[in-house]
Design a protein around this nucleic acid. Structure first.
Length: 468
RNA sequence: GGUCCCAUCGUCUAGCGGUUUAGGAUACUGGCCUCUCACGCCGGAGACACGGGUUCGAUUCCCGUUGGGACUACCA
């Protein structure tokens, strides 16, 4: 049994950051390879030297790493593989499947314009096709495309797609400056790297017959194809900067968990019944090209936010604490007490949708000399709660075990004696301890803060009210 | 213009001829819970683009219309 190993690849061109559309393509390739025990290759398509940058390459790699999409081979750089492309082009010329063309771009333009004027297709007219020309300065190499018949392929998501060969023209394989064109480089790379499953955006559907023709001319086996629908912006047009955050790294910086993004990307275009949440392992196990939908979709940032909140809630305090630190640092909070951080995260994780939000909510735990928010101050730090706060302070001071359970007991007793509801004292207390009207439960906060800190903050607020 | 692809709630989607008063998620919304916020729970509103076929029966199959998208380069 010759079960060929499945080999997939992700070939971004380093002309910008990795956006979520590219990330999803990478994800699908990665999932497919991982599920089938295959190999996943990263290849940087940097043949366009004008637009490619090293910075973009770094951003792409950083994005892939952050998402945890690890590759088994590469990154390969097309700019370093010209010898390979040339050898394939030579093969094609020698076998008569490609030819040298001396038409200049200017000539082509005018002939194209003429053809268009006559209502004909603006494709290459084949002038040099049978001239048996040799290489010359400024000449290019073109593929001798069959002029009749069909090129057909089976697509794992779209089904069978057919093109008439007469629609295709003799595409250029090698430019006049000696560099390979996109189609040539892709095919040569995929052949030489053994790529046998090509999963890419459906903007490549029209490129597929051209590339298949190159495979055929070379006598190489044609890979399997799956064209996944594109991701659109909210206005249903192609994703671009004006659609807000589209780069993977932007989501990292906005405090999203990598798995939340991954999960959300997986569900955009792919589905598994009604299931919405998947672990990494489930994604690998359950992914299938058959369940990838055919139509383009709009990225739903609100849903991502909800997923993120859910994954934050599910994460361990330890893991969150580690991920939260850079965000706290961004707020100027550093060198913090590890125990308190862990406790803080524990109280905040079920009420934070992003790590940024969590960091902001966590501030009060680490700040000395809290600023009381103006409205909170006015509404809750009033003279009539002074006595209650004093009383509580005394009781807390007498506590040996400063835990949530003990605190609740103390308070139950206190409220009972004073014949008041918790609501009466909870908000003033919250403002005293956090400076704000919104926070985790007051007993949780007190436990995390610890007895000493709580007493400090109470003393301070009592002084503050008295001084008013 | 030509070629190719696509079309279920605002959005992501389930549905693969009858089991559907079209299900889930999110967002919106009413209520409950409650020390604030959030979570959670219960409920509401919200979709098969249109027109022809095929069929006993179409959201599901076929054709057309409309609408979107992609490609059409010596970009990738």
């Amino acid at each position: 049994m010759t079960t060929d190993q499945i080999i997939t690849r992700f070939p971004p061109s380093p002309t910008g950051y990795l956006h979520i559309g590219g990330a999803r393509t990478a994800l699908f390739n990665w999932l497919f390879a991982r599920q089938r025990g295959g190999k996943f290759i990263l290849r940087i398509e940097d043949t366009d030297r004008e637009r490619s940058s090293e910075q973009a390459t770094r951003a792409i790699i950083e994005s892939m790493e952050w998402l945890g999409l690890d590759w088994d081979e590469g990154p390969y750089f097309q700019s370093e593989r010209y010898d390979i492309y040339n050898s394939y082009i030579e093969r094609l010329i020698e076998s008569g499947q490609a030819y040298h063309c001396h038409c200049t771009p200017e000539e082509l333009d005018t002939r194209r314009a003429e053809a268009k004027a006559k209502g004909l297709k603006p494709k290459y007219d084949g002038l040099c096709r049978d001239l048996g020309l040799g290489p010359a300065p400024g000449s290019v190499v073109r593929l001798k495309t069959p002029q009749s018949g069909m090129t057909q392929f089976h697509d794992f998501v779209k089904g069978t797609i057919t093109f008439k060969n007469e629609e295709l023209d003799d595409l250029i394989l090698k430019r006049s400056d000696g560099s390979p064109t996109y189609h040539m480089a892709v095919v040569a790379d995929d052949i030489s790297l053994g790529v046998n499953y090509i999963i890419r955006g459906d903007d490549h559907v029209n490129n597929t017959p051209r590339q298949i023709l190159i495979y055929k001319a070379l006598g190489e086996p044609i890979p399997h194809y799956a064209h996944v629908p594109m991701i659109l912006g909210a206005d249903k047009t192609r994703l671009s900067k004006r659609h807000g955050a589209t780069s993977v790294l932007a989501y990292r910086d906005m405090g999203y968990l990598p798995h939340a993004l991954l999960n959300s990307l997986a569900r955009l275009g792919w589905s598994y019944g009604d299931q919405e949440k998947f672990t990494r392992e489930e994604l690998i196990e359950k992914f299938s090209l058959e369940n990838v939908g055919k139509s383009a979709g709009v990225f739903n940032a609100e849903k991502l936010l909800d997923l993120n909140a859910w994954y934050i809630k599910e994460s361990s305090n330890e893991s969150l604490a580690g991920q939260l630190k850079p965000f706290l640092k961004g707020l100027g909070i550093e060198d913090l007490d590890e125990r308190r951080l862990l406790g803080a995260v524990g109280t905040l994780k079920e009420r934070s949708k992003t790590l940024i939000e969590m960091a902001e909510s966590a501030r009060f735990y680490f700040q000395k000399n809290l600023q009381y928010e103006e409205n909170a101050d006015k509404k809750f730090l009033t003279p009539d709660v002074m006595d209650l706060l004093e009383d509580i302070k005394g009781r807390l001071n007498g506590m040996a075990e400063f835990s949530k359970v003990e605190l609740e007991e103390i308070f139950t007793l206190f409220l009972d004696e004073k014949k008041i509801k918790l609501g009466k004292i909870a908000q003033p207390l919250r403002v005293a301890l956090t400076g704000r009207t919104v926070s985790p439960g007051i007993f949780e906060i007190m436990e995390v803060l610890g007895k000493e800190e709580v007493l400090d903050r109470l003393s301070r607020v009592i002084e503050y009210i008295r001084a008013k």
